[in-house]
Write a protein that binds this DNA or RNA. Structure first.
Length: 849
RNA sequence: GCGGACGUGGCGAAAUCGGUAGACGCAGCAGACUUAAAAUCUGCCAUCCUCUGGAUAUGCGGGUUCAAGUCCCGCCGUCCGCACCA
């Protein structure tokens, strides 16, 4: 094969992608004697086009997968599609296309885009969650969960998105608005399916402790989300004998500071009272209207309604506390009722000040012990109990324990744990999702679809001309016979939250039998995922749900593992400058795309009119700011390897990566530079050895490998650059020729097409495998990893004064003597004896004069 | 409000255990090659000074240490998550 002077990326990309496919290079192997590596990147939603964030994500996973293959692992590196969801239905409504057709078209074009990146993926395992093969097995698992008591159906207030006409999980409500539509969310009472994730709250929290290879940030976010609080639950008795209500507190120690009791506007007692009290009914309605609005949350104004009822203080029945209905008490946390202790809780203090309720100090703030509390800042710090009868003098912890034990002894309360985490509502009033496999029968109630009737397949003929759920108004689909009594019945028309689809797909990748969700034997071999890579935006929802499913399946005896992802990596976003011009007052700035812009060192101009534009902050690529760069255009111009290389260069992978034209140009130049170097594998010069270069080569082999293993791609890139510099500067020698040859394999995981092209150009005797994809990672010679000479710094009083090169491994005395013998040091010392000399062998000498 | 992370040249960054701060890349400057450009190659590139040397430098102010980007205390700033969670 004749060698071209320049690397023709476009032709080479296509050629090698075809060669890998023909050779089936990335089919998952399973040889008993090799360690396994399951490398997984979060599967994409088929929105239509891949974006740079995908390129970065999949480039990282791909480097790792290829490296694992080269280092003798059986590698599982699959790809699939998170294919259900709202955008497909929106497209259906806007463009009149079928969600299924739209989704499948998108998958086809995105698959093509991903293949252009040259990813080492086993495409035979590709799956889409919208295939009945997949969601039918999901329905089977859902029935298993039901049988295990982990699925319930209950009436509950749900977050209703009036624009998307669907229910949202709490996690999908952001600042009181739907996460997709941005519409103000309303409360609505509906019968909904729930997965009992709260059964696993404790386990999911405890399990975080074992996830050493997860980012601390993600573990902390999950911990906060699960939100474990320990405290006291006790009942208030209404004065006058009627039944009271339960409250929960994490501060039972402040019980003597109680000055009122408060219940949520959604509390059953409040609703009952409202039936005969129109003013209260109005107040409750007002709270519901305001409860979710953004400005309500911001101003945080405390509103209350005095019911006129009073309750007995549990420790002093003579003391009566007024009962208020209060807007800041949430029904779905704790018991929906509290006692107010204004001196030591800011919200209660704001409320008490507004409505003139008493404020009693019960925790000493340093020397301040007066019962009468002044000021507008509640004291929440540590201190001894005061004004609290038998608790006086105790610490907060002692007092908590004393109250809990007394409550339990006297029978009016008990120590308890309350979770922030709530059961996962999975019902969605949507078409494009997994049908929930249940049937409602007048006679038999809600009955599961028998497993032999799965999958419950979505009907194709649906109408999107009006909002709401097309399944619900489909003429025939929902009408079925009851599997139990054979009478007329209707299907459940809700579909599953798409987060269910992504809660087990990593199991299906390992094995996809047609008659079950997965093969437990195969799961035993491949799971957990060794390295999971994706965006931090999934830190809570997806990752928590996947952990829950894994634990649930474990509890049901279906799998052995309890955690799905042994190691997690959350990568940063791809960002870009923005280019804009002000359009005048009241108008938003006009943004321009990067390819409309001429960028120079000191600014940017619009190509069309050659006039300057404003260069804005480097922010996440987004369509609205027009700072997006299309991966296809980059691949056309520079090829896959330059794009991959740039994605991996410079920025640490967990941090944001600023995309720049100059950066991709630099990557492209480096690709060409390597191509020239790879032409030198037979240029041995005088044929001699170059010991110094050999050291650098072997240090690079070890260093690059270690960096890739640790996902330090930017460091691996820097080391390859440094080695390329060293090789270029070295005189031709046998060592240099060998270094050029070895460098091909060092860059192969990151620039696989270039590496194959260079590999193929080698004389047959120089390569052990036909494809570099099948080659082994080079072995570093331990003898060459250490230098035999070291440069030692000589400091005086901590300041660098001189350096010297000595043999490695000299003892302290020899190093000290050598340092003191340096003319410069002798001169600075001026004949005086140093007070102290610290020697760190092979590193430095610090002389304290 | 609560919790967390981060702050190093013009820019992205490195410094793995407290031991020579700024590797590597981008941008820039100077030069070589060229009729010219591109490409390529060579060199320079933290700041200041009295410049074969020296001083100051890792957000700011303290501290520990022979030695601090790294450890401790207190500020300031930026970003992220949660948010009336009792």
């Amino acid at each position: 094969m004749t060698r071209e002077p320049r690397f023709g990326a476009l032709a080479a990309d296509a050629r090698w992608q075809k060669a890998w496919e023909a050779a089936n290079s990335f089919a998952t192997t399973d040889s008993a004697d090799k360690p396994k590596a399951y490398i997984l990147e979060m599967f994409p939603y088929p929105s239509g086009r891949i974006h740079m964030g995908h390129v970065r994500n999949y480039a990282m996973g791909d480097v790792l997968a290829r490296f694992k293959k080269m280092t003798g692992h059986d590698v599982l590196h699959p790809m699939g599609w998170d294919a259900f969801g709202m955008p497909a239905e929106n497209a259906a409504m806007e463009k009149g296309v079928h969600p299924g057709g739209w989704t499948r078209d998108n998958i086809a074009s995105m698959r093509g885009q991903l293949k252009r990146l040259g990813l080492a993926i086993d495409w035979s395992r590709e799956l889409a969650t919208c295939d009945p093969d997949y969601y039918g097995q999901e329905q089977a698992l859902f029935l298993d969960l039901f049988a295990a008591g982990l699925v319930t159906r209950k009436e509950s207030y749900v977050n209703w998105d009036p624009v998307d006409m669907t229910v949202l999980a709490n996690e999908q409500v952001i600042d009181g608005r739907g996460w997709r539509s941005g519409a103000l969310v309303e409360k609505k009472k509906l019968s909904q399916w729930f997965l009992k994730i709260t059964d696993f709250a404790d386990e999911l929290l405890e399990g975080l402790g074992g996830l050493d290879s997860w980012p601390d940030k993600v573990r902390l976010m999950q911990e906060n989300w699960i939100g474990k609080s320990q405290g006291l639950e006790f009942s208030f008795k209404l004065v006058g004998g009627a039944a009271g209500f339960d409250v929960f507190t994490t501060r039972p120690d402040t019980l003597f500071g109680a000055s009122f009791a408060a219940i949520s506007p959604d509390h059953p007692m409040a609703e009952r009272m409202a039936q005969d009290a129109p003013e209260l009914a109005d107040f409750i309605a007002e709270c519901r209207r305001q409860g979710t609005s953004a400005e309500q949350l911001e101003t945080g104004e405390k509103l209350g309604f005095d019911t006129g009822l009073t309750v007995e203080h549990p420790l002093d029945p003579a003391l009566h506390l007024p009962v208020w209905v209060v807007n800041y008490v949430l029904m779905d946390y704790g018991t929906g009722a509290i006692f107010g202790c204004p001196a030591h809780d800011q919200r209660d203090l704001d409320f008490a000040r507004k409505y003139g309720l008493p404020i009693h100090r019960v925790i000493a703030d340093g020397d301040e012990t007066a019962q009468h509390f002044t000021g507008d800042e509640a004291y929440t710090g540590p201190g001894k109990l005061v004004n609290s009868h038998f608790l006086d003098g105790m610490t907060i912890d002692e007092a908590k324990a004393a109250i809990v034990s007394r409550a339990e002894h006297e029978g009016w309360g008990k120590g308890t744990t309350v979770w922030r985490l709530r059961d996962w509502g999975v019902s969605r009033q949507r078409y494009w999702g997994t049908p929930i496999p249940f049937i409602h029968c007048h006679a038999c109630g809600t009955v599961p679809v028998p497993k032999d009737q799965l999958p419950v397949v979505l009907p194709e003929d649906v109408d999107f001309s009006i909002p709401g759920n097309p399944l619900d108004r489909h003429p025939t689909w929902k009408h079925v016979r009851c599997p139990s009594c054979g009478g007329d019945a209707v299907r459940e028309t809700d579909t599953l939250d798409t987060f269910v689809d992504s809660s087990w797909y990593f199991l299906r990748f390992a094995s996809s039998p047609s008659d079950r969700p997965f093969d437990p034997e195969v799961i035993r071999r491949w799971l957990p995922v060794d390295q999971y890579i994706g965006g931090v935006e999934h830190a809570i929802l997806h990752l928590l749900y996947a952990r829950f499913w894994t634990r649930a399946l474990h509890k049901m005896g279906m799998i052995d593992i309890v955690e799905p992802f042994a190691s997690l990596f959350t990568q940063g976003m791809v960002t870009h400058e923005t280019y804009s011009r002000e359009q005048g007052e009241g108008l938003p700035p006009l943004y321009f795309t990067p390819d409309e812009i001429e960028r120079s060192a000191d600014g940017a101009t619009l190509t069309a009119d050659a006039a300057p534009v404003q260069v804005g902050r480097v922010i996440k690529m987004s369509k609205s700011k027009k700072n997006v760069v299309d991966p296809d255009a980059i691949l056309d111009q520079y090829g896959a390897d330059a794009a991959r290389w740039f994605m991996l260069s410079d920025s640490p992978p967990e941090r944001d990566l600023p995309w720049s034209e100059a950066g991709i140009e630099g990557a492209w130049r480096f690709v060409q530079r390597l191509w020239r170097l790879f032409g030198d594998t037979e240029n041995v010069g005088d044929g001699g050895e170059d010991r110094a270069l050999a050291r650098k080569l072997h240090q690079a082999i070890a260093g690059v490998g270690a960096d890739i293993e640790a996902l330090g791609f930017n460091k691996a890139v820097a080391k390859i650059h440094a080695l390329a510099n060293d090789i270029e500067k070295a005189k031709p020698s046998a060592t240099r020729a060998e270094a050029c040859l070895t460098l091909i394999r060092l860059v192969a995981p990151m620039m696989p097409h270039l590496a194959e092209e260079a590999w193929a150009a080698l004389p047959a005797g120089q390569r052990a495998t036909t494809l570099v994809a099948d080659a082994a990672w080079p072995t570093a010679d331990p003898a060459l990893l250490v230098d035999d000479e070291v440069t030692i710094a000589i400091q005086m009083a901590g300041k660098l004064r001189d350096t010297m090169t000595l043999a490695k491994g000299l003892d302290k005395d020899a190093i000290e003597a050598a340092a003191l013998a340096r003319p410069r040091i002798a001169e600075l010392l001026g004949g005086a004896t140093p007070k102290k000399v610290i020697v760190v062998p092979d590193r430095l000498v610090n002389i304290v004069p």
